[in-house]
Every structure is written in C-alpha cells, then in structure tokens.
C-alpha cells in the first residue's frame, strides 16, 4: 500500500514539476511550483524525514513561492508580462534529448547504489553526549556546525547583496511596502494578519524548542517567523524597517554572531566550535533561538526586496 502511495505521489511530483516549467502562463507556473513544493514535503514525510519536510514546506514551497509571486506581481506592474518567446521545436527537441540523456545516466548511477541508512547508527551513538535527541539537529548544530555557521552567512550575505542593488535614492530606506491598498482587503487581511502574527510566533518558538528532541529547529522556526512577519506586513500591521536601523542590524547579526562567539569560546577548551561538556544542549538551544530570530528577520527582508526611495514605498514599488 505504502509503495503504491509513493508511486502516485512521485508521479504527481513529476507532473507538477513539468507543469510549473511548461505552462505558458508564468503565474500558473508559480502556482504549480508551490503545489510541487508541498508534494515534495509529503515525499519527505513518506521518507520519514520530518525535519526536511518541515523545511521544504516552509522554505521550498512557502517562502520561495511567495518570493516568486511577489516578483511576478512587481514585474507585471512594470509592464513585463513574464512571458517567454517559445523556443524553436528543433531546439526543444535537441535539449530534450540532452536532458533525457542526463536522466538516463543519473538513473543508471542511482540504480547502481543501494539505498541505506549509512550513518544513522553512528550518529545515534554520539547523540547522548549532546543531550539532545533529534539526530538532524545534532548533525546541523554539532557534527557539522561549521557548515551551518557558513550557511547562516550565506543568508546574511544574500541580504547584503540585495542591499547592494538598491536603486538611486533608495539607500538606506525601507523595502517597497507589501501592504495591500484597497480598504476592503485591508480590513480582512488586517484582521487576518493580527491573528496570524502571534500564531506564527508561538509556532516558531515551539518548532525551535521541539527541534532539539523532535523534528524542527532554527531554520524551520525562523521561516515560520518570517512568514508571520510577512503576513503582518501584507496586512499593514507593521512596516518593515529601514536598512540602516541599528536595531534591525542587531537582530540580523544576532544569530550568526552568537554562533561565532560560542564557536570561538570553544577555542578556550581546545577547538573552534567544540561545546563544553554538560553545556551542549544549553548552548545548542541558545544558538538555535538566536539563529531563528535572525533567520526570520533576514528571510522576511529578502522576500520584501531591496530598499526603494521613500516615494515608491507608498505605491508598493509599482
């Protein structure tokens, strides 16, 4: 039964992916991309990887989807219909042959490898030393904390990179307002956002807390927080801050800086990023909360986009 379910699921994943790419309407493609991301989340659930499912649904489908919707809306407001001139059938056929070849090669390679849980047992033996039970959090925050540290800087760097392309007169202002202008939708979505922001805060805090023992963690929690901030901004309940706001800057660097600080503190005990015995869980949870806060703020601002001149803020950057 389970295999039949997986088979149907995989076919639907492939169908939505194909539709998201082949549809002429760009917005239709984005709709299918979001459905694709949600179905992938189900695939990860089916694989028993709930941590990844949470990340995929929240980040892969959720935040990426909203990012694409907003980009599409802003592009069409500028008169760019986001339409592609169809490429010639010959070209498409040639590309299809190449991509088909790649799929065949990859499939042969995949079938030559037998799926196994290679490191699960080894990780399980190390987990008691950390005092936490979620092995994925163990990998992310201990065994490969170095990857995770660099990754948080990728995220921070992406926001700085978005700042770098602020239009003339836009620096250091706010991003274009996300608030919806019409009064009717304002009341509906305004109420909506006032309900959803606290809900997302609770959910984010819960996901980070539960993440040490059960699926969840800083990235999933941070993304839910970003979602709450974005809904509040869409509903006009909050205005996104200026890029030079020092409180904002402090929130953005809090997680990465705390991670660096605790890592450097480990040098006193011999190694960068080694946690003192007995304090592993406390430090991991502290890093996770700080990271979730920073990730939430960073992702929300990444979705909102570059700073724009004050006049454009009111018009929503149109």
């Amino acid at each position: 039964m389970s295999l039949v379910f997986d088979l149907v699921l995989c076919l639907m994943i492939l169908g939505t992916a194909a539709a998201s790419l082949l549809m002429r309407s760009a917005l239709g493609g984005i709709v299918f991309f979001i459905a694709f991301g949600n179905l992938l989340g189900i695939a990860w659930l089916s694989l028993g990887a709930v941590n990844v499912a949470l990340a995929e649904i929240a980040i892969g489908a959720g935040v990426t989807g909203i990012l694409l919707i907003l980009a599409h809306a802003r592009l069409s407001a500028m008169g760019d219909p986001v339409e592609c001139e169809p490429t010639s059938p010959w070209m498409r056929a040639a590309v299809a042959v190449i991509c088909g070849g790649l799929i065949v090669l990859l499939s042969v390679a995949v079938l030559s490898i037998s799926p196994t849980d290679r490191m699960g047992a080894q990780i399980a033996t190390l987990m008691p030393a950390l005092g936490i039970e979620n092995p994925v959090t163990g990998v992310l925050l201990a065994f490969r904390a170095y990857d995770t540290l660099l990754e948080t800087f990728v995220l921070l760097g992406a926001l700085v990179a978005v700042w770098a392309i602020a239009p003339p007169g836009g620096w250091p202002q706010r991003p274009a307002s996300l608030a919806i202008a019409t009064p009717v939708s304002l009341t509906v979505i305004g109420t909506f956002s006032r309900v959803l922001l606290p809900a997302s805060l609770v959910m984010a805090a819960y996901l980070v807390w539960t993440g040490s023992d059960l699926p969840g963690g800083a990235f999933q929690g941070g993304t839910v927080l970003a979602g709450g901030i974005l809904v509040a901004a869409l509903g006009g309940a909050i205005a996104l801050p200026r890029a030079d706001d020092m409180r904002l800057r402090s929130v953005l660097v809090l997680g990465p800086a705390m991670f660096l600080g605790i890592g450097l503190g480990g040098i006193a005990l011999g190694r960068f990023l080694s946690y003192p015995v007995g304090l592993e869980k406390a430090l991991i949870v502290a890093i996770e909360y700080a990271l979730a806060l920073s990730i939430g703020a960073t992702l929300a601002l990444l979705v909102a986009g570059k700073p724009v001149p004050p006049a454009a803020v009111q018009e929503g950057g149109d």
Partner: peptide, 27 residues
C-alpha cells in the same frame, strides 16, 4: 510529529493566500 508539518503547511498556505491577494489587489 507529522502533525507539525501539517501545521506549518497551514500557516504558510495562509501566507500564500495573502500574497496572492496582495499581488492581485488593484493598485
């Protein structure tokens, strides 16, 4: 724990609705 995934999906689905409304609002 899969309930958490459902919960997150619910929250972000709500966000997607809001984003669609925002992108469709006459402006």
């Amino acid at each position: 724990t899969m309930l958490d995934a459902a919960l997150v999906a619910t929250l972000l689905a709500a966000l997607a609705v809001a984003a669609f409304v925002a992108s469709r609002a006459p402006r």
